[in-house]
Design a protein around this nucleic acid. Structure first.
Lengths: 216, 216, 216, 216
DNA sequence: CCGTAAGCGAGACGGTACGTCACGTCTTCGG
DNA sequence: CCGAAGACGTGACGTACCGTCTCGCTTACGG
């Protein structure tokens, strides 16, 4: 049966006729990523427009709308792509947290690297833009969190668990919360410009978080 | 006397023809505040437009452009006005942190109240919008910080210093950094939706921050 | 040959990025013409706005700005289009001046027809508007003259020259000036409402012009 | 004192509370006339605004709205004032048409003077503006006609009647129409820029009009 | 190996909002 | 109470982008 299928079946599996991924132009995709990052860096996120990205990438607007649903979406993918490139360029486990046995030292080292990264002008503009958009746009916020932040945070969870097993952290402490004690203040300062970022600052955070504010 | 004064000295101090503040319509100003807050709550910040605010407030666009420089600026003032009203309505020392002698209890009480406030739908939308805009727009970010956040943070600084004098906090700890240990994680979770907000959560933060993660 | 031409030479002759005429929507164009003429007739030229035309035509403002430079420009083209349609509808030589051998009779016939046309409410409003705008706006005035008036005036020149050859008009008379003797007074009366328009009036003009005011 | 004055009786006699003419500031009036004429000459009629006139005249907007009903109205009065001044400056019967007994010569002389006047840059801009506005705005058109044009035209009527009595013009000719034969073409050429203005041109008009186009 | 259907660059289209300008009204002060 | 000043509600301006929609034109595949 099904003799007369006649299938111009537009969507094999998809519910909403997604374009044919195999025919996608990688050339255009890369050009769009580059244009998006460049524009955000040059004129800021709000003045970055889809038309502007298309023009700069030498691409039709439809090519953007075909593959992404919004400006924020383009930028998120562009940023992820940038991160991957950077990661690949810098060798494998760039962001894995070392385990020298000295938890405080390991955390300080990683946070110092983070501070340096946050100051890299290539990252600053798009990162801020994504963070801001995520605050207001729930869908993007979730994507930003799961695709970009969670993987890094998981590394802290792993390291803290190892420290617990080694008896360097209170066994009943929840690592998912514990890591916020030094990560959140850093993020906050950077996002809100509420104070200077420095290695000394993150070192202090680690000390306070590990040993508490109350006198021993 | 002074018959031939003729002095129509227009600007006593002004640098560039600012409108005459004494003639400002308080009626319009209030209507604009209300419209702005309502729209942000109803349709979200990005879909809130100056034209929309003007229409809803029954006001000309120019009346907005005359007194504010941007949508964010309007919203910031509207929010400040809302806060002031709320403060006046709730009696004097609403936000002062109590000092019962038990620092942990006092902090937990305040943070629980903060959690409740962050969940108030009247505050959520505009607060998020302002926080997001401040991330990307440096000028607004600074205003947001100094006018809205700093006064609250200062209360923590004061309470922490009192605790230091009472010997409940290590004397060498910097209160400005110390407060970030419990304030920043809460802010972060709320802004990034990276976890549930609850009284239990903030209680935990206070415990971790005061006593540290390392075993005693 | 020419394998690597790569020449995407964008503008062969163009001076400054004119829109692509081949992609122009004829549907919109006609709708704009109709809306413009209707609005001028209904509310008058000064109260006719580009926004109004766009709204009535169901068209974006930009579609007007893309193809025309001003309200007057739209109206001029709309009026030209209207004239062409009317001409096509009325057969070929509508406006050609007949040559029965009796110059006075021929001129009177044509001027009577002109009087009737000037009273047609479809023509009155846009025609007045264009004439008025042309007085003040030199560029439009020239367009109005060359595209709309000159062709008609040329018909008078032709007829007068034929009359000269037939010995019915003084051979040294300049037809370009001569025609003004009966055309200009009619135009003037109509534009300035300085007197009633009637067939008797134009007949009189022709008589005066052909035979002069001085007694014979 | 005067605590219970309360009398803000708005309109003592008038049907529509016209302001008290006796208190009118002549200083402001003159300043407004000058500003209006200057602006029309400098930036053109459409870009001349009431606000601009008020600012340039050092006058409140209300002072203009109190005494005039529209921009066109201001300009008409300003122009009338200018004409009167010019007339007063140039002695009495400037514009009276001479009667030397030679009608053609007299008309040529007057029309030559008119051509010269039409070229005076002080007159050109406001005159054009008023003529154009009058075409489209019936009320102003009538005022323009009766206050500015009719008095001049009447002079031609008078001169033509005198010529009729002297037997130099056909007795059955209607002077009101006859004058249009040379006045309208000149006006038309000037308004529509449909040809050069020169003394030779107006001379020709007079010859054609007086002696006709048909061969004698 | 050739037709056909996709992705593509381009950009016109119906719209919405922008930020500015001028309108005509209204209110405040000073003379 | 006139007049200078100018804030106000209104509405049009001309521009910038939005997201959708054709247009040819490559370009890869499947009969």
């Amino acid at each position: 049966m099904d003799v007369q299928k006649s299938a111009h079946a537009p969507s094999p599996t998809a519910e909403r006729s997604r374009p044919d991924v195999t025919r996608r132009s990688q050339r255009s995709r890369q050009a769009i990523y580059e244009a998006a990052l460049a524009l955000v860096a040059e004129v800021g996120y709000p003045k970055t427009t889809i038309e502007g990205i298309a023009a700069r990438a030498g691409v039709g607007k439809q090519t953007i709308y075909r593959w992404w649903s919004s400006k924020a979406d383009v930028l998120l993918e562009a940023f992820l792509d940038l991160s991957e490139q950077a990661a690949r360029a810098a060798g494998e486990d760039t962001h894995a947290i070392p385990d020298t046995g000295d938890l405080a030292a390991d955390l300080k080292a990683v946070l110092r690297a983070t501070v340096d990264e946050l100051r890299d002008p290539r990252y600053e503009a798009p990162y801020r833009a994504l963070a801001a958009e995520g605050v207001v746009n729930e869908q993007l916020g979730r994507d930003f969190l799961t695709k970009l932040l969670e993987p890094s945070l998981q590394l802290y969870v792993d390291r803290l668990r190892a420290a617990q097993e080694a008896g360097h952290v209170r066994p009943e402490a929840d690592p998912r919360i514990a890591l916020e004690l030094f990560v959140a203040p850093l993020a906050q300062r950077w996002l809100q410009r509420s104070g200077p970022l420095s290695h000394a600052y993150t070192d202090t955070l680690v000390d306070y978080a590990l040993h508490g504010l109350a006198p021993r």
